[in-house]
Design a protein around this nucleic acid. Structure first.
Lengths: 134, 134
DNA sequence: CTTTTACCTACCAAACAGGTTGGTTAAATT
DNA sequence: AATTTAACCAACCTGTTTGGTAGGTAAAAG
């Protein structure tokens, strides 16, 4: 539940691409150096972002990754949900979780749902561009 | 990070005590049955709540636990921080975490801090009484 | 002295976090 | 054609956390 290195690194790579990807593809070797992250670990994270259409990857010399949209068109929520999975703060609310037979009478469930909504709303209100401007 | 069964069960036990503790101490055997939780697991969770002064425990027949304050005087935040530990959504912000040397220039840190504040504020604004009234 | 109940310690299996190793495939350069 | 670069993929690995269970001991009441 919630944000581990996977999601945080994914965000930092996306920010790096936004800052350094004006002229074409950016190899992860450079990103890894700038961000002080393990190249191999980044390589494990990126394919999901490609699959979901957030970035484009090109093999070989002169290759690397690049954003396919403008920074203001990516929300932090999208990036985190793709790299991390569900952003639910409790297992009860994770999509695909076994249904709880106490849900009807549960005094705490509405609170978890409200928080879940707050968290998603928070992340969906922030774009890559917002973070760049800080 | 965030809310596992420990914190969720602690909350449910506290709510059960608030509902069923009018006349004295409530044995965990009863709570476990009502809440459909493992008695042994509850027993592992309770001592922290005693230590922090949220509840009082009494041994032997007629014993059990009881709240020491009125339901409206307990915040969900207090209960969760005691049972779960830090409510930070990212490891960077957990108190006692190794300081990050990129913190100064980190583009994402302010966002994590803002969320952290939101989450704590959210839980601190809800009391046991609020949950009972739902 | 028996019952009840809190409390304590040790253990355990499964899952997850946070990677590393060792490749293969594709594209460009020489 | 050979080499280099870089994405991509599969398997493995170590440590920690989660969600408990087992088997008690200590205290209070009847």
């Amino acid at each position: 539940m919630m944000i581990s290195t996977r999601g945080r690194y994914a965000l930092r790579v996306m920010l790096d691409l936004a800052e350094n990807g004006q002229n074409g593809y950016v190899p992860m070797k450079e990103v890894a150096q700038r961000q002080e992250l393990s190249l191999k670990y980044i390589e494990r994270i990126m394919p999901a972002l490609v699959k979901e259409g957030l970035v484009e990857g090109v093999h070989g010399k002169g290759g690397g990754y690049r954003l396919v949209k403008r920074p203001e068109e990516y929300t932090v929520g999208d990036i985190l949900r793709i790299s991390e999975g569900d952003l639910s703060p409790v297992s009860c609310l994770v999509s695909g979780a076994p249904p709880c037979n106490r849900a009807e009478s549960c005094k705490t469930l509405p609170m978890w749902k409200k928080l879940y909504g707050m968290v998603n709303g928070f992340f969906d209100s922030i774009t890559l561009k917002d973070l760049l401007d800080i």
